[in-house]
């Protein structure tokens, strides 16, 4: 689901409450596309409650107006990167990590993706670990929120989505579609079929690829996974493939096809 757009008046109230102005791309997405819902990682957090989700408590009044110190043009930060916040931050027991940022999504465990709202990187998207002394923040290549979100949409729809959430948005990630089609290792092809099928959007091109694997892959475990993934949200156009899979040489594939058709 994608939450309904946020009225401009509520965005303004949020900005006045915290003494900031949201980066224009994120602001226009909120007011015209939606607030929270389908997106990278576990989905976009709502502007209203991301602080409860991430921190379990409301943020301090000065949290968003305090600059996030890092800049994507600086050299890559080292393991002691958080000293950039200054000694007062390190000595403050109540200080939360990552001032000047809003959490956009969780990528599992303590891994989060943030939007910088104050500081030299304002408008940029950055991957972080809430255990701030474990991993240094890593800026994505995207110039702003809309580029980040659209890249996820493109990668998802075109089958570049993969299972590991912390690497799903790297530019250099090999397309899952190509792995399913071309990899010689059946275990890799199965991972690719699973990754493709997990995407929230299955475009006709991806359905066609999964369908080809379901009836044509030489390895039964790959055919079975492709059938299961197609069968999670089948469309009428998938029936032909699923019916053909009922006569597969492997009983496991036939069983998966039967369950998909019965579902």
């Amino acid at each position: 689901l994608l939450g309904p757009p946020m009225p401009e008046s509520r965005v303004v109230a949020f900005e006045e409450q915290y003494g900031i102005r949201l980066p224009p791309c994120y602001r226009s997405f909120l007011t015209t596309i939606g607030n929270g819902g389908i997106g990278p990682g576990a989905g976009l957090l709502h502007l209203d409650d991301w602080d409860y989700v991430v921190l379990g408590a409301p943020i301090r009044p000065d949290h968003l107006s305090t600059p996030f110190p890092l800049s994507p043009t600086d050299p890559a930060p080292g393991p002691d990167w958080y000293h950039a916040f200054g000694p007062a931050w390190l000595d403050d027991d109540d200080a939360e990590p990552y001032p000047g940022t809003i959490a956009l999504t969780t990528r599992g465990c303590s891994l989060y993706t943030l939007l910088v709202v104050t500081g030299p990187a304002r408008g940029r998207v950055v991957d972080v670990n809430l255990e701030f002394d474990v991993d240094a923040p890593s800026f994505t290549h995207d110039t702003d929120f809309l580029d980040w979100y659209e890249r996820w949409l493109d990668q998802t729809g075109n089958g570049m989505h993969s299972a590991p959430p912390d690497v799903a948005l790297r530019d250099d990630e090999p397309p899952m579609a190509a792995i399913l089609r071309d990899a010689s290792d059946p275990a890799l092809r199965e991972v690719a079929a699973r990754g493709l099928g997990r995407a929230p959007i299955l475009t006709p091109a991806v359905r066609s690829l999964l369908g080809a694997a379901a009836v044509g892959d030489p390895a039964p475990e790959v055919r079975r996974t492709a059938v299961i993934m197609l069968g999670r949200r089948p469309t009428p156009s998938d029936d032909d493939v699923l019916v053909r899979a009922l006569t597969d040489a492997s009983a496991d594939v036939r069983e998966a096809a039967l369950q998909a058709l019965a579902g």
Binding site: S28, L146, E150, L153, G157, P200, T203
Partner: peptide
């Protein structure tokens, strides 16, 4: 904004699934 319109169009299949 052209990018917002493009994103809305790309999100359309998601809405179709609901």
């Amino acid at each position: 904004d052209a990018r917002l319109r493009r994103i809305a169009a790309k999100l359309a299949p998601v809405r179709d699934l609901l």
